[in-house]
Design a protein around this nucleic acid. Structure first.
Lengths: 256, 256
DNA sequence: CGGGAAGTTGAAAAAAATCAACAAATGTGG
DNA sequence: CCACATTTGTTGATTTTTTTCAACTTCCCG
């Protein structure tokens, strides 16, 4: 749960805000609408502040109530990544690509202050290009982390391992290298820690995948032999009842 | 694992960089040192790029090699939060308070480009105060998320639940409310999803804590009766062999 | 009221952790 | 350069936490 930082609401009614009057984003002094409606929004239980993919033209700060933040993956799995209460910012990660990559839903009657993005700088030119890139990268990082949280929370050991390898592979390809040849410069213990698994489990998963002919493991080196199988493994949901031809993949898939 | 975004290195040798010459942070055109040593750093296996708490005056981008990012909690538990390869930024979250809240270690021979913070804006005044606050909030958010990852990866169900309640409590106190009276506006399913547990487990943990006299649960309302016990529960490590007087807390603590 | 969702509780199952022993690799010093 | 020691990784057996399944209760909301 995000902490409260020393920013404050940007409403004309900052004076009445429980967070005090020392709002760094206070725009009382500027030429802005005087009605509070354009500065605040009241949400009722279940109402969405914004949904995945909707255009992000503002940031929000919770004044009262609670907002649930969640992401949904391609398979439709939902992951709650945070509960934002009074003082917390919502939509920070949206700076990334002008679109929200997550969803914000009010859990009870909630009042949020609206911070239109354009007020962050008087005019666009005020933000140095580099800084803009930095914010984008930070925002992207938050987004990536949310996806990781979903994977760690809902994937099986085999899925996590598969995803890990596929990510490494994608990264290598992005760098213009052969995505089927992976170096694993980190120890098994580090992989295990990262994936929230025991060292032994990581070892077993690699062995099992090798047994299945999906990859060739040699200590700190892995060669992908069957990318399709690995991808399919990564998508094999917990609930997928296996009607596999052979039951040789007992270890890799949760079965019935 | 963070993706590659369309920023690029800021070295005088950008021309030789595999990421191409379209570096948004390219400062070749500016008055800057001509030696590449001040723009890059070579790390050997095991060498730290920076450690927790060290002053953050730069960002880095990995050119080659792999950097492990990890955080350590008060109990000394380490959590690997990412492996950064070519193209990934390192130290983004440090903008938060001028200090790195995590540790970056080279996993093999690694070359990083150095982006001194001061080059992000020609002069400090270029960054609007509000924008600065925004970056700080984003950065804080990343930091909080890393801590959450550690808790989810290493804490037991009981610990996660205890931490969850303590965080809610702290948040209420930060808002000037009574920290012992907690409203739980979210459903059990949402709590379970957030904590990466099954609904039934959440229910059982709450029941168990109530049985122990730690709290009083009433559907969407919880009252903390014994904060100390809750804190102690949150810190009871998996490995802590319980020499508890009574073994009434079987469910709450992993025991021997 | 009544019906459906949300929450609780118990029993059984399963994924993954832990324990334990071994094998392979790395690195050190003779 | 080889033996030895230490670390790292693998494999199997067992245990444990947590999940899953199932039944039941309570609470809302129409």
């Amino acid at each position: 749960m995000p902490n409260v930082v020393d920013l404050d609401v940007v409403s004309n009614r900052c004076r009445s805000c429980r967070f005090g009057n020392n709002c760094a984003l206070n725009i009382d002094s500027e030429n802005s609408p005087t009605d509070s409606s354009s500065r605040m929004r009241l949400l009722h239980r279940g109402e969405k502040l914004f949904g995945e993919g909707s255009t992000a033209d503002a940031l929000y700060r919770v004044r009262s109530g609670v907002i649930k933040i969640s992401v949904t993956d391609a398979e439709g799995r939902e992951q709650v990544t945070g509960f934002c209460g009074p003082g917390d910012f919502v939509g920070l990660d949206a700076v990334y690509d002008e679109q929200y990559t997550n969803e914000a839903t009010a859990l009870d009657t909630t009042c949020v202050c609206i911070l239109p993005k354009h007020i962050l700088s008087a005019n666009d030119g005020d933000i140095p290009h580099r800084l803009r890139q930095l914010i984008k990268a930070l925002s992207q990082h938050v987004h990536d982390h949310d996806r990781l949280q979903l994977s760690l929370a809902q994937d099986t050991a085999a899925q996590r391992m598969a995803n890990f390898l596929l990510n490494l592979s994608a990264q290598r390809e992005a760098a213009g290298l052969d995505g089927d040849d992976l170096a694993l410069p980190m120890s098994r213990a580090e992989i295990a820690n990262y994936l929230a698994l025991a060292v032994e489990t990581v070892s077993r998963m690699l062995t099992a995948m090798q047994r299945e002919g999906i990859l060739e493991v040699a200590r700190s080196y892995v060669r992908l032999l069957d990318r399709e199988a690995l991808i399919s493994l990564a998508h094999t949901q917990k609930s997928d009842v296996n009607d596999a031809e052979d039951d040789s993949m007992q270890m890799l898939s949760r079965s019935a």
